[in-house]
Amino acid sequence: MKLYRIWGLTLRYLFLFRHSLDRISDAFFWPTVDIILWGMTSSFFAKNLEGGGNTLILGLLGGIVLWIFPWRSQYEIAVNLLEDLWNRNLVNIFVSPVKFIEWVTALLFLGVGKAVISFTYASLLIYFLYSANILSVGLVLVPWAVLLIMFGWVFGLLVAGIIMRYDTKIQTLAWTSIYVVAPFAAVYYPVNSLPAWAQSIAHFVPASYVFEAMRSAVGGSPPPLSDLIWPTLLCLVYFALAIAMIYRSFNHILKRGLISVD
């Protein structure tokens, strides 16, 4: 792997952000909408609670803010691939010495960059609007973020692989697919509030462990870090499978020829 080639690919997407108001604004617009909507809702319910109101607000808004990590990292991978397909640019990339793994690496890190920017903005927003400080949970936020980003990568790679294989006619998956798993990730409510069958699924969704841990930490009883071993292992397995899947899809489109891919 050569860093200059990864930088070249990253530059291509950074230049695009500079010229795309829609791509810049979506990093801020949806978090703002969610935070205002759920912030107002949770504030309303908190008023009627005796004690624990702040925990409710931070629990809900913390869910929204942490959800940014998987959402943005998935979205950036899938949408940046779409940009390359719309512009018939894949062939320009792969007639150069760029390796498949370098291209994937650039996509993954772009997602991280955008996720961190959106997260920072959303954290500041909930602090200023609702005095809710997500950083109060401490350094445990770092492993949570890593796990959630990796979970987003898994979805991003899967969606990118499916779009590559079946063309842009299924491109809406790029924007919507991660929401399929959102109910099982227990972003806004505890896993035990799900029906039994859904709880079984939630146990295989690594993000659900992070949101459970976040709620416990906000409630004053943070779980031990060792609770993250199982979801991390799950995530690593999913990540390996997603890489294998996108690699297979790439080899599949090589059989059709990159010039004809759109």
């Binding site: 070249g8 690919l9 530059l11 230049f15 500079r18 010229h19 390359d84 640019n89 062939v91 320009n92």
Partner: peptide
Amino acid sequence: STYTDLPWRITVSENLTWTSWLYN
């Protein structure tokens, strides 16, 4: 090729800059 494009939204200078980074 006349059958391929470069990213449309970015400038000529930017397009040639990012592609230049793909080579040593």
